[in-house]
Computed example of a mutant assay.
Amino acid sequence: MATYAARVSNVAAKVAQGTSVSEALSGESASIALASGPLRFVPGDSAPPGEAYEAFIHRTACVPTRDNLHDFFNGLVWLHYPESKRRLNELQAAEIARDGIGATRGPLRDALTLFDENGAVLDAPKPLWDVLRARDWRGLFVTHRPLWREARLLVFGHALLEKLTVPRKAATAHVLIAPGEMTSGALDDATIAASLHPAHLATKPFTPLPVLGVPGWCVQNENFSFYDDSEVFRPRRDAERSPTPSPCDGGAA
Score class of each variant (00 low, 15 high):
3 T>E: 15
6 A>N: 08
6 A>M: 03
8 V>C: 11
10 N>Y: 09
10 N>P: 01
11 V>Q: 00
15 V>C: 06
15 V>E: 02
15 V>R: 03
20 S>C: 09
21 V>G: 02
25 L>Y: 07
27 G>W: 15
28 E>T: 09
29 S>Y: 11
34 L>D: 09
36 S>T: 15
45 D>M: 13
46 S>L: 09
54 E>S: 10
54 E>F: 04
58 H>I: 06
59 R>C: 05
64 P>I: 04
64 P>Y: 04
67 D>K: 02
67 D>Q: 06
70 H>S: 02
72 F>S: 00
73 F>I: 00
76 L>R: 01
77 V>F: 04
79 L>I: 05
81 Y>S: 02
83 E>M: 12
84 S>M: 06
85 K>F: 02
88 L>M: 09
91 L>C: 04
92 Q>I: 05
93 A>Y: 00
93 A>F: 00
94 A>G: 09
95 E>H: 04
99 D>A: 13
103 A>P: 08
104 T>G: 11
105 R>Q: 12
105 R>T: 05
112 L>N: 03
113 T>R: 11
113 T>N: 12
113 T>K: 10
115 F>I: 10
118 N>W: 15
120 A>P: 01
121 V>D: 00
124 A>W: 00
124 A>Y: 00
127 P>L: 02
128 L>R: 00
129 W>V: 06
131 V>E: 04
131 V>A: 07
133 R>Q: 10
135 R>M: 10
137 W>D: 00
137 W>M: 05
138 R>Y: 08
139 G>W: 02
140 L>N: 04
144 H>F: 10
144 H>W: 13
145 R>W: 06
146 P>F: 07
150 E>K: 13
152 R>V: 09
155 V>L: 13
155 V>P: 00
156 F>C: 01
156 F>L: 08
157 G>W: 00
158 H>P: 01
159 A>T: 05
159 A>P: 00
159 A>N: 03
163 K>S: 08
165 T>C: 13
166 V>R: 12
166 V>P: 08
167 P>T: 13
169 K>V: 08
170 A>W: 07
172 T>I: 12
172 T>A: 08
173 A>F: 09
174 H>E: 10
176 L>D: 07
178 A>H: 14
180 G>L: 12
181 E>H: 05
182 M>N: 06
182 M>K: 05
182 M>C: 07
184 S>Q: 14
186 A>E: 12
188 D>W: 09
188 D>T: 15
188 D>Y: 10
190 A>T: 12
191 T>R: 10
191 T>A: 15
196 L>E: 07
196 L>A: 12
200 H>Q: 09
201 L>F: 06
206 F>N: 07
207 T>D: 08
211 V>S: 03
212 L>Y: 13
215 P>M: 11
217 W>G: 02
218 C>I: 06
218 C>S: 14
219 V>E: 15
219 V>F: 12
222 E>R: 13
223 N>I: 14
224 F>C: 06
224 F>G: 06
225 S>A: 13
231 E>H: 12
232 V>Q: 01
233 F>V: 05
234 R>T: 14
239 A>L: 12
240 E>F: 11
242 S>Q: 13
243 P>L: 12
245 P>E: 04
245 P>R: 04
246 S>W: 01
246 S>V: 04
247 P>Q: 07
247 P>H: 06
250 G>A: 08
251 G>T: 05
